[in-house]
Design a binder for these strands. Structure first.
Lengths: 185, 185
DNA sequence: ATAGCCATGTAACCAGTTACATGATTGA
DNA sequence: TCAATCATGTAACTGGTTACATGGCTAT
């Protein structure tokens, strides 16, 4: 159910088309919630049926019509209620860890390559998060204050990536050297 | 597709019934892969159809028959291939972060309560991981060496929980005091 | 030319959750 | 007597992914 609420959150900040929302998911909140355009269009349809959003069609020269969605007062009420509700942390399901768990010495070369691949991915994600953070630090204090909570979610993304990188490096090195980790590290 | 392989990993170490596997998922590898008994029974059925596992029925007094599953040579081949294959990191989808992102001052009390709830959950999970780690350190070095890779996945779980706790504490305090985070922290 | 952006969607499928169902044994 | 453990499953549903489909405009 959270995708619907994520959409409501974005539309509450600013009306937009399905296409707009797809971009905003990718750029803005993609580090904690991802959604494809297919999913977004389907959910917008459902949200419209539930009267939590409504839209105006905007004709455009040489392009398909744009549907500009906005949240309804009802949608805002539902959103408020959801924000105050509680839910449990998402379950972790990570195939890489199954592989680390199960690998035998003859699998180590392939596993090391895979760990390196993941290292690279996480380093890239971290770099992009840090770039975003740098932009935040350039803002004046009043503006920083206004987007403080979104910034805190970015911090979480940064921490998350850093944590992965540390573990991957450590694990990579330990497997490569085939020795025991030191206690208390 | 990873659940199937996770099951193959467990059966490769030791044959077991659906029920056994449910326990092993909960205790052993639950920190990186969770599965309900319903899912496990369904997947075992499919794995059997694909000839990647087979089973013997064991009659039991006063209890339903136990189906003891074991991996087949074919299953082992498929498993080896999968371990060496590569996949991308799982996508993150976390409702709590949507809430932090979207919260307005009037939502802060509810949000703080929610952050505290999550803090507690993560502290409990960390405690259970640390208890498991303590058991590992008590083993002699040869035994430690033998289960080194599974231990590395536990370390990842520990790091993950610690990271959450740090972020939750920091975020909780910042929202409670309603002030800006310090740069470079 | 060809890739990328703008802009919309449908359909089939896969993975995971929730609800429902049964029933004996053991310990508090 | 009530909850937990052992032991198996089916069915309906929800959420998300992959594949398919259309088509003009703009920049290299």
């Amino acid at each position: 159910m959270s995708l619907k609420h994520a959409i409501l959150v974005l539309l509450d900040r600013e009306p937009g088309s399905g296409y707009d929302l797809t971009q905003r998911f990718a750029k803005g909140i993609g580090h904690f919630w991802q959604a494809s355009h297919q999913q977004i269009y389907q959910q917008l349809k459902k949200l419209d049926e539930e009267k939590l959003v409504r839209f105006e069609t905007q004709a455009q020269a040489g392009k398909p019509d744009r549907k500009l969605y906005r949240i309804t007062p009802q949608g805002q009420k539902v959103l408020k209620r959801w924000i105050k509700a509680s839910d449990k942390p998402p379950v972790v399901r990570d195939a890489l860890l199954i592989k680390v768990f199960a690998a035998q010495p003859e699998d180590y070369p392939a596993l090391l390559a895979e760990l390196d691949r993941h290292l690279q991915i996480h380093r890239e994600t971290l770099a992009s998060h840090l770039a975003q953070e740098a932009g935040y630090f350039e803002l004046d204090e009043a503006h920083q204050r206004r987007i403080r909570l979104p910034y805190l979610t970015l911090r979480r993304g940064i921490r998350y990536e850093r944590e992965w990188i540390e573990w991957l490096q450590e694990t990579r090195d330990l497997i490569a050297e085939d020795r025991l980790p030191e206690q208390g590290a």
